Computed example of a mutant assay.
Amino acid sequence: MRLSPYLYVVPFFAVFLVVGVYPMVYSGYLSFFSWPRYGPHHGDPVGFANYAHVLQDPVFHKAFWNTIGIFLLSSVPQVILATVIAAMLDTQLRGRTWWRMSVLLPFVVSPAATALIFGSLFADKTGLVNEVIHAVGLPKVGWHSDRLASWTAIASMVNYRWTGYNTLIILAALQAVSSHLYEAAAIDGAGRVKQFFHVALPSIRPTMLFVIVTSTIGGLQIFTEPRLFDTNLQFQGGADYQYQTLTMYVFNTSNSATDPYPRAAAATWIIVLIIITIALLNFAVTRMIQRRSER
């Protein structure tokens, strides 16, 4: 009986070691060598040359800022909107079960279908969004050529798919908050808004931290939406790399002619370090806000 909990979790960790840990370790090892099939060195160690090449690559710089821009336009509004919707669904709405189920419907839609829908909405010439913009007397937007516009279109796809998922997580945490806390706040004269900010949000800080961290990781690893948004069939994130992300950079580098896998592996580990740094920054900021509120 004492061993049964371990037997339940061993299969997961065994599979994780094979398909998760081993590829990570091997990619880290490979990033310090040249690829045996290409180049004159035939698999000789090159030290940090692959990392230096990636960090000096102008395309990587564009991919980095593209990823940060799309992340800020998607993850930040997504968490805020999910929190607001969860707070509304935590009230005594009519048919609240139906409303709670409906917010998850966009998450069920496949990424390819989502890309087709939003690709039609944000088409450069005949898209619905441009038609509406043109109808009110404004010039049409080049959603695939303008950098900020392409970020906005891709972020809209991400928000459409993931807002409902985060909403249900936050809603579950809100429903776990004791009603006695709300009653005590109401006796003190706090209204619904004050109860939300001074009772609900402090009570679900661990859940909010989880949502923020996972949204950060997902936002910095975005690949499917910009890849499917690319209509020039070269899949490089626009003619001038205006919406190529870091993960797209890794994919394209792995298909290049010179040392593809070592340089892609080096780019992957750079992305890992970027994600860890931003996740730790999110954690530190959240802890700082929590400590100030406790004072």
Rank of each mutant, 00 (worst) to 15 (best):
W151T: 07
G137D: 07
V136C: 00
V158H: 07
S156I: 14
L72P: 14
I68L: 01
S74Y: 08
D44V: 11
R161D: 04
L128R: 07
E131R: 15
G127F: 06
D146W: 08
W98P: 11
V84I: 11
T97N: 01
G119S: 11
F122A: 04
S145M: 12
D44S: 14
K140T: 13
L81M: 02
I154N: 01
A52H: 06
D57V: 02
G137W: 14
S156N: 04
S75N: 01
V79M: 00
R147F: 06
A49P: 05
G164D: 04
T152K: 00
T152G: 07
R94K: 13
N50A: 12
N66Q: 08
V109F: 02
T163N: 00
S74W: 03
F107P: 03
W98Y: 15
R161V: 03
H144T: 15
H61C: 08
L104S: 13
S150W: 03
G47D: 01
W99K: 15
V103F: 09
K125Y: 11
W143N: 02
S145Y: 10
F118R: 02
G127T: 15
T114D: 10
W162C: 09
D44T: 14
A52M: 03
V46R: 05
S75L: 02
A123I: 10
S120F: 12
Y51L: 02
S145W: 10
F48T: 10
D44P: 08
S150K: 11
M157L: 05
K125V: 04
N166T: 06
F60H: 07
V158F: 00
G142L: 12
V84P: 04
A113N: 01
W143F: 10
L73W: 08
G119E: 03
V136D: 05
N66I: 04
A87E: 12
A153N: 04
P106R: 14
D44K: 06
V129M: 10
W65V: 11
M88W: 12
T126F: 09
I80T: 05
S145L: 12
W99H: 14
R96P: 15
D146N: 14
G119Q: 02
K62S: 10
L121D: 04
S110P: 01
Y165G: 03
F122G: 07
R147E: 12
N130M: 13
I70Y: 12
I80P: 08
R161L: 00
Q92I: 15
L121P: 02
G127C: 05
M157K: 10
V132C: 06
S120G: 12
I80C: 04
H61N: 12
L121H: 07
G142W: 12
W98S: 08
A87W: 13
R161I: 00
G127L: 06
K140A: 09
I133M: 07
G47Q: 15
I117K: 13
D57P: 00
N159I: 13
R161W: 06
